[in-house]
């Protein structure tokens, strides 16, 4: 019996290792290419371990191409967006979960509807809107849109979380004379911490990765985010693949740190979202 279990476990592990290799290999080749000079990028046969490794691509990405600036833009946009989403999202979720009021179902239905709508389908009127509000080629234009696109999911997540939490504490506080705002700040927000963390991470990933809107409304490199910058490294005359991948690896780092340190919350959020809808 025990031996059978060891064999079964070994087979399972072996199969998973095979699949894991396929998940990891593209990344390894990316790292390897980032370490190659242009001469070796298309050498035949292709080598996973570069024969003449160099850090030149990383140096170029960090110094010459203003990459630090794009990194900062992405960071600013992501952080402000996430803060706004958490604040506005939890306020909306609190109202939806705890109050009966006229229009509640309409608002909730809208949140669900926009959560499932293809994001590209409104890009034209959204562009016209950004144009009217003079937000084309500004960071604010990116932030506003990112908030609007990611808000429905966070509201949905937080509302669902709150709906499952008993109201006793709140009601006790209210009897003691606490206002709704006090309840929200001192009871609801602390209770919601896990859901807030999940929603923060998921919004962050979404905003950090956002490309279509960013490339549509930014013109000047000073307003570029990382995905736009990386896409622009695909040159007209030639694509310097080593540079593209060096930049990509730098861009992956914050996501990786976030992912490894907060894996639990990310997974919780993803599953909550799916099991719920």
């Amino acid at each position: 019996m025990k031996r059978k279990r060891i064999i079964k476990q070994s087979i399972l592990t072996l199969l998973l290792l095979l699949g894991a290799a396929e998940m990891i290999l593209p990344f390894l080749y990316m790292i390897s290419t980032a370490l190659k000079g242009p001469v070796y990028v298309f050498e035949f046969p292709p080598k996973l371990i570069p024969s003449d490794p160099t850090l030149q691509n990383f140096r170029t990405a960090l110094t010459k191409n203003n990459f630090g600036h794009y990194f900062l833009n992405s960071l600013i946009i992501s952080v402000i967006t996430v803060v706004l989403i958490l604040l506005l999202g939890s306020m909306m979720a609190f109202s939806l979960a705890r109050f009966k009021f006229r229009g509640r179902n309409f608002i909730y239905g809208m949140v669900i509807f926009f959560m499932t709508m293809p994001s590209m389908s409104l890009i034209v009127p959204q562009f016209v809107m950004a144009d009217r509000l003079k937000l084309v080629d500004t960071l604010s234009g990116l932030i506003f849109m990112d908030v609007a696109m990611n808000l429905p999911f966070s509201v949905f997540l937080l509302q669902g979380f709150l709906a499952d939490i008993p109201r006793e504490i709140e009601e006790a506080a209210k009897i003691d004379g606490a206002s709704n705002t006090t309840v929200f700040l001192q009871i609801i927000l602390p209770i919601c911490k896990p859901a807030l963390a999940t929603s923060a991470i998921i919004s962050f990933l979404g905003v950090w990765d956002e490309y279509v809107w960013a490339t549509t409304i930014t013109n000047s490199p000073k307003n570029w985010t990382i995905p736009v910058a990386i896409a622009s490294f695909q040159g007209v005359h030639t694509t310097n693949w080593g540079l593209v991948f060096a930049a990509s690896l730098i861009a992956i780092i914050p996501v990786l740190i976030l992912f490894i340190s907060l894996q639990k919350y990310i997974i919780k959020g993803m599953t909550a979202g799916a099991v719920k809808g």
């Binding site: 490309y211 995905p227 991948f245 990509s248 861009a251």
Partner: peptide, 9 residues
Amino acid sequence: TSWVVVSLL
């Protein structure tokens, strides 16, 4: 990982 990055990859 970002869609832009994996697509180029």
